[in-house]
Design a protein around this nucleic acid. Structure first.
Lengths: 120, 120
DNA sequence: TGTCATACTTACAAAAGTTATAGTACCCTA
DNA sequence: TAGGGTACTATAACTTTTGTAAGTATGACA
């Protein structure tokens, strides 16, 4: 999972900020390059690894696997393995993950407005 | 400002995602390590460079300057220089920046709830 | 003349995050 | 026995972000 150095100033700062401020904590959790994109696709229901891959044409398998693992660890998605052949693994949002929906909506609204202010 | 390589896959992916999805666009804008922290402090009114520095004890001058410059470019903050001696420079949120307030609130609420789900 | 305060900037280095490419394990089917 | 599909993993290279330490410009003031 690309280990991080617990003792780096960078990491310390990040933890300190997230510790004293819940919006920063939240932003850290949803902040990976592909995290929100994955959320957007899962918000309509569960998907298999391969389905997600198809919907995110530019992601590499490694990144998809890494992000999903991180999201699972962060309690955003639930992973279910079906012992079939070929193997089937399904990913779906947890309750906490679904709770992001209003956040995403607001972010989207803000983004639209903000983009307009940038174009003049 | 630490130039980025326009042609990297990484940058292309980022642009593609932000282009098709406004919540990702928004997340990219507020996603710097210190961006939200700075917003939180400016939400109560304008502050000078040195005042911000005091309120963010672990930030380096370099990072503060970089983030503020990026936030100015992204139309989140307005920079005003007063030709006094010693120099005085004030930073305040733009209208767009102030528009982040409800987003921050929701993020905070989500963060609090989410944190609870992680502690058991 | 030298020191002080403010608001930066620069050069360099380290860390974290992302991408590229190839390979694994499982078991089914031909 | 060989090939195929699914869901990954391993390793290394590369890009971006952040940190460290030192230096700049300005003009007031002693």
């Amino acid at each position: 999972m690309t280990r991080i150095k617990e003792s780096s100033s960078r990491n310390e700062n990040k933890k300190a900020l997230a510790g004293e401020c819940m919006e920063i904590y939240a932003a850290n959790i949803i902040g990976g390059q592909w995290t929100l994109a994955i959320c957007c696709h899962l918000i309509n229901g569960k998907l298999r690894f391969g389905e997600l891959k198809k919907r995110l044409p530019w992601i590499t398998e490694r990144m998809l696997a890494l992000q999903l693992k991180k999201m699972e660890k962060n309690n955003l998605v639930k992973r279910t393995v079906f012992a079939e052949v070929p193997l089937r693994v399904e990913y779906e949002l947890t309750e906490s993950g679904k709770g992001l929906e209003p956040v995403l909506k607001l972010l989207e609204e803000w983004g639209i407005k903000h983009l307009k202010t940038m174009n003049n």
